[in-house]
Amino acid sequence: MRKAISSTDLLSKKYDLITWDGEWFDNFDAPEASGSWFISGNSGNGKTSFMLELAKALSPFGNVLFNSLEEGMSRTMQEAWKRHNVADCGRKIQLIKEKYEELRIRLKKRKSPRFIITDSWQYTGMTFEQYLSLKKEFPDKLFIWNSQMFGNKPIGQTAVRVQFDADLKIWVEGFKAFSKGRYIGKFYAEGLTIWEEGAQKYWSKTG
């Protein structure tokens, strides 16, 4: 049986945080730099754009792997990479297309990237047990999963379980990203704008 944690132990514990600022802090506060995040939202609302901007925002705090299982090195990914000036981050952000075992091998290497963004969860073919094992094996890394959707629900029961487990849940709609998880900034209701023109058009119609 493990020793119970006292109030003193809990309140004195230090955490490794993502200390970003601006809209990122306003919407997502200063989250831990490890664990699991879950991105959801319907197609055509700016999820790929958000993930690339997220990769750029995380890059000052550690190297980022963009695991593009859906698009890989397609022309659409190349165009998105250009549009968001991802190359400005140099080798801080790298593109891969790897499933569970390949990814594990890469992450075991010395000085492997700290942040892993995967598009999408459904393309990984992972079980929930493998998901938990990945978190346990690499406790100092942050895994970020994008999910395909059927309406407002992730496709597949395993994806639903991953969403429930995630520390930060991010909903992307109308070219804005909203915090729905445990980290909420003071302006979270307004959402982080991914594309100004697209967001204005979308929300002026729905408002």
Results as ranks from 00 to 15, higher is better:
180 K>S: 12
87 A>K: 09
168 L>E: 07
145 W>R: 08
93 I>L: 08
62 G>Y: 01
168 L>M: 08
106 R>Y: 04
154 P>F: 04
161 R>D: 13
5 I>A: 15
41 G>R: 04
129 E>P: 02
129 E>D: 14
66 F>R: 02
125 G>V: 06
195 W>N: 14
14 K>F: 12
146 N>H: 09
153 K>R: 15
133 S>T: 03
40 S>C: 12
6 S>R: 05
72 G>Y: 01
119 D>P: 02
102 E>P: 03
136 K>Q: 15
63 N>E: 15
41 G>L: 03
201 K>E: 14
71 E>R: 06
76 T>V: 10
98 E>R: 10
201 K>R: 13
187 F>K: 15
115 F>S: 03
9 D>V: 06
136 K>A: 15
37 W>H: 00
54 L>M: 08
112 S>K: 00
120 S>M: 03
36 S>N: 09
180 K>P: 03
167 D>R: 10
59 S>T: 07
25 F>Q: 11
172 V>K: 04
196 E>L: 12
173 E>W: 10
93 I>N: 00
73 M>W: 13
159 A>K: 08
12 S>E: 15
76 T>W: 11
38 F>L: 01
33 A>N: 06
8 T>D: 15
3 K>T: 09
129 E>Q: 08
24 W>I: 05
113 P>Y: 08
144 I>K: 01
170 I>W: 03
8 T>P: 07
70 E>P: 02
24 W>M: 10
137 E>S: 05
94 Q>Y: 09
200 Q>Y: 12
44 G>R: 02
87 A>F: 14
9 D>T: 08
69 L>D: 02
201 K>P: 06
88 D>S: 14
66 F>K: 01
11 L>R: 11
20 W>A: 15
94 Q>V: 08
177 A>E: 00
131 Y>P: 06
14 K>H: 11
40 S>N: 10
193 T>F: 10
147 S>W: 03
95 L>K: 00
147 S>L: 04
90 G>Q: 10
95 L>Y: 05
163 Q>H: 14
202 Y>R: 05
84 H>S: 10
88 D>K: 12
